[in-house]
Write a protein that binds this DNA or RNA. Sequence first.
DNA 1: TAGATTGTTAATCGATTAACAATC
DNA 2: TAGATTGTTAATCGATTAACAATC
Lengths: 215, 215
Amino acid sequence: MEEKEISQAVIGRLPRYFRYLGDLKDEGVERISSQELSELMKVTASQIRQDFNNFGGFGQQGYGYNVEFLYNEIGRILGLDQTHHFIIIGAGNLGQALGNYLNFERRGFIFSGIFDKNPELVGKDVRGIKVQPMENMEQFVRENDIDIAVLTIPKASALEVSERLVQYGIKAFWNFAHVDLPVPEGIQVENVHLSDSLMKLSYNISRYKKEREEK
Amino acid sequence: MEEKEISQAVIGRLPRYFRYLGDLKDEGVERISSQELSELMKVTASQIRQDFNNFGGFGQQGYGYNVEFLYNEIGRILGLDQTHHFIIIGAGNLGQALGNYLNFERRGFIFSGIFDKNPELVGKDVRGIKVQPMENMEQFVRENDIDIAVLTIPKASALEVSERLVQYGIKAFWNFAHVDLPVPEGIQVENVHLSDSLMKLSYNISRYKKEREEK
DNA sequence: TAGATTGTTAATCGATTAACAATC
DNA sequence: TAGATTGTTAATCGATTAACAATC
C-alpha cells in the first residue's frame, strides 16, 4: 500500500489553497492554471504543482485545474467531508467566543458541549448549550461520540484535564492552553498559542525598527 | 554592520524556549545544558545551540546556560522589554475575549481601545475600556501612539479597515480575519487563522484513522 | 588539570525552485 | 496539429543534525 507520508509543510498550506479556491468558486471562476494561482497567492507555480501532486494529479495538461473539482478534492483531503463533534473545556471569554463562532459548523465541526469548574458559569447559555460542571464531562464524552476537545483553560489544569479526556476516548485536542500536551501516540494535538504568536509579532516589529535605525 | 537575517523558523521557536526557561526559572533552576533542555523540550541539543548562537554566545563551555540570563536575553530579542499599545477592531465575542485576556499586559502589550461599527456594542465595557464607534478610530490612533491593531472583524471589511489603519500610522496587525492582508512593506502582520488551524487538526484526525484502517 | 559542554564547521536531510518531457 | 500547461525529474537552496575543536 506504500502511501508516502505528506509533510506538515504541505498540509499547512492546504487550508490556504482551500480558501483561495473557495473564493474563486464563489466568483464563478471555472478553471485556473498554476501560473495564475501563483500570482494570486504569491507563491511559486512550481510549489503549487508539487503540492497538488502529492495527492495525485488534479489537473489537465494544456487546461489547468478545474476550480470546483480542486476545491472539493482539497476539502476531502482535509477531512472536511467528515463530521466531528467537539466540546469546549473552559467557559471563560475565549471558550465562549469559540462556542459562539458559527463558521466551524460549516466545516463539519459541531459544537456539542461546554464545561467549566466555576459554579457561577455553570448553567450559562452559550449558543443554546448550557455550561456543565466538570463532573459531567466523562459521561458526556462517552455517550455523545465526541472526537475533539477544545482546551481553553489555564495551563495549570490543562495537563490533568487532557489526561482524563484521553481516558474517556477523546481523539484530538485543539489546545489554547499555554503548555505542550504530552499525549499518547495517535492522539492529535493542534496548538494555538496566542502569546507565542504575539511574541513573533513583537520580534518583527523590533527587528524592523532596528533595521530602519541602522540606515 | 552586516547583521545576518534570522530565519523565521528560528524566530518561531523562540517563544517556546522562552516559555520553558520561564518555567525553569520559576522552579528555581539556575543552569541547564543544551542536552538537558533538549530532553525536556524534545528537540535536538544541536538545534538548541544553533538557535541560540544566531544571537551570539549565551552559554559557557563546561557549564551550560544560566537560566535566568538566557530567559532575559530571549525576552529582549523578542522585544518584550518594549511596550506596545494595541487596539482591537471588532468587539464581537473574540474581540472581547482578547481584550479581557490579562496575560498580554505582562509581556508589554497594553490594551488601549476597542472599536465596533455595531451601535449596540458601542459603550459596552471591556475590562474598563468602552467600545467606541469606528468614526473615533482615526483620532484615537493618531493621538494615543498605537502600534498594533488586532483585527477581529469579518473578512469582508478587514481589507478596507486595514488600509485605513495603515494611513493612520499603525505599524503591525494581529490578524484574526480570514484573509491575507496586502499591507505595504515594513508593516508587520501576524495571522491567526483559527479555521486553518482546525483544518490541519481535521487532516491529522482523518489521516490517522485511515492509517489504522489499513493495518 | 581533567571533564564537561559550548560554539562552530561539516555532513545530511528535506523542502523549494527550475526545467522540460509528456499530454491534453 | 500547435499551444498551453501539467506532472515529474533534476538542481538548488536552506534548515537540521552530527561531529569535534575550543575553552571554561
